[in-house]
Design a protein around this nucleic acid. Structure first.
Lengths: 185, 185
DNA sequence: GTCTATATCAAGATAGAC
DNA sequence: GTCTATCTTGATATAGAC
């Protein structure tokens, strides 16, 4: 058994958890290193700066959503009803098990004003979320209506994640998904 | 004309703006002092710590909402329709002119996990917001429905503030208020 | 009430040994 | 790839002169 080599991905996963729960500025390189069983200097072998870790963390989550959730909307062998059910199911699986809520939503409020790269990534994440949902809803609604519904439900989901985190209760969050599913006949 | 004496309130107003736009941890005592035309050491004459400024900032906003917005719901000389119109109008006036969005929403995601005092204040702010809206909606809906609608609209408002800040567009935010108003006949 | 000056600590980051 | 050690900066906070 060789010695454990810490991978970039492993560092990102620990970073994501810390950023979500404690925030970006309130998470130090020492905190990240400690979570990985390293000391802070060692992290710089894998990433050139904290900002790079932050941006890669956002991209990592974004890619997960693209590959596992948004893509459901474009699997045109599925019926719209099945699509929306799978889509919501995957989103719920993620956020009901995500301590600290939504990293991209959190950082949108914490630092998107300060960092254009972070802001662009976060905007793309939300824009593509809306696009995917719209692509499902287009089955039952005209363009403008489908788009308006999608935007509203992404915003509402973020608002409910905020409340779920604050009140430690998933009750109202879950109703959002049910409502979206009911929009598709 | 005597020399300007900096008041606690003046410091809070500058702090609130900085916290909203740049975040809590990313705003330093030096930033706050600079905005007030002081140097950082001087702030400690007015507040004993940054944490006290943070908590007082939350309470300051919360009190503004209580005294100027939530109270509208309890002015029982007004009709429900007028109440909801004034209520929404005041909220829109605030957030459409609030660079950086909602301080209490922002700090809910940035640090409520870290600071129980902050978290309690933020929860009270949202709970009282929901209660006030429910008190208006109770004219047209039964208890449970009024409460569910209130919670949903507070969450949606926070989600739309997030999107408004991110995309620099108030279009979707404004539709939320229209929808709430239309709920009351 | 504000200033200068400073104490103390923790942050991000780098160099070089192993 | 990880470590020890260190550099530099900026953070919160305090003491005491004016």
């Amino acid at each position: 058994m060789g010695l454990k080599k810490t991978s970039r991905e492993e560092i990102l996963q620990h970073s994501i958890k810390l950023f979500k729960i404690n925030g970006y500025y309130n998470t130090s390189m020492a905190n990240i290193a400690n979570a990985c069983g390293l000391i802070k200097g060692s992290i710089y072998h894998h990433f050139k700066s904290k900002e790079e870790i932050g941006l890669e963390s956002l991209k990592y989550i974004h890619k997960y959503f693209e590959d596992n959730i948004y893509n459901i909307a474009y699997q045109d062998n599925l019926t719209p009803k099945v699509k929306v059910q799978k889509f919501i199911q995957k989103i719920d699986d993620y956020f009901l098990n995500s301590e600290g809520g939504c990293l991209l939503g959190n950082l949108a409020l914490e630092i998107s004003n300060e960092n254009a790269l972070f802001k662009d990534e976060i905007k793309q994440y939300f824009t593509n979320w809306e696009k995917a949902l719209k692509h499902i809803l287009i089955c039952c609604y005209e363009q403008d209506k489908a788009e308006a519904l999608s935007k509203r439900y992404v915003a509402l989901t973020q608002g409910e994640i905020m409340m779920m985190t604050l009140y430690s209760s998933s009750q109202n969050y879950l109703k959002v998904g049910e409502k979206i599913i009911s929009l598709v006949k």
